[in-house]
Write a protein that binds this DNA or RNA. Sequence first.
DNA 1: TCACTGATCGTCT
DNA 2: GACGATCAGTGAG
Length: 201
Amino acid sequence: MSDARPLTRDDLPEETAALARALIGVTIAHETPEGLVRARVVETEAYVPGDAASHAFRGPTPRTTPMFGPMGHAYVYRIYGVWLCLNITSEAEGTGGGVLFRAAEPLEGLELMRARRGGKAADAALLRGPGLMAQALGVTLADSGADMLGGGPLRLEAPTRPAREIGVSTRIGLTREADRPLRFFARGSPSVSGPARLNRP
DNA sequence: TCACTGATCGTCT
DNA sequence: GACGATCAGTGAG
C-alpha cells in the first residue's frame, strides 16, 4: 500500500529485451479519479529496434512518436478498432523500441477493475491479455507519452514478493518476425495469456 | 485445447 | 483501401 516503492530509471535496464524480462513481477499502478488499481505484471513482449513487427520499424509517425522518446514512457495505441494496448518505451531517446504489457495479476482495486471489465471474468482473468489489461487499468489514449518512472498516476513500483521463474517464448499474434523469442512470462501464473503450448517449460 | 469467425475503426499505403 | 502487437463465442477433436 503506502510502502510501495516507485521504480525509477536507475532500477531498470535501457534495452528492450532486458527490460521486458525485468518487468516480470513488478507492480503497475494507475491512479484515476475513480480510484487506485494495482496489478503484478506477469507477461510482456519486446519490440526491439530493427524489428519488422514493431510499430517503430518504419520510423516515427504521429501515432508512434512516443516510441522514439526516452525510456520509461507510455505508448498507447488502439488495435482492431476496439482495444487499447499499453507499452513502455525501452531505449534511449531517438531509438524506437517498446515493451508491450500483455497480462497481469490483480492486486488492489479489484472492484474497480471488475466494473471496468463489465463482465463475469474470474479475478485471475481480469487482466489476461493486452486489451483486457489496458481496460482493467483504465488506461486511455491520453496516457500515451506519460512518464511511468516519475511517480505519476500511471507508474511502476517495486515487486511485492520474490519473482516467479521466468519463461520465454515466441510472441503472439504476429505475422512478421514471428519466430523470435521475445515474449516473457511468469511461469505458473494463472493470469498469463496465450495458448498453453507457449507457456510450458 | 485449439481453430476459426465476426466485430470494428484508426492508421498508413 | 487494406490491415492489424485482440477478444468472445462457437464447434470439432
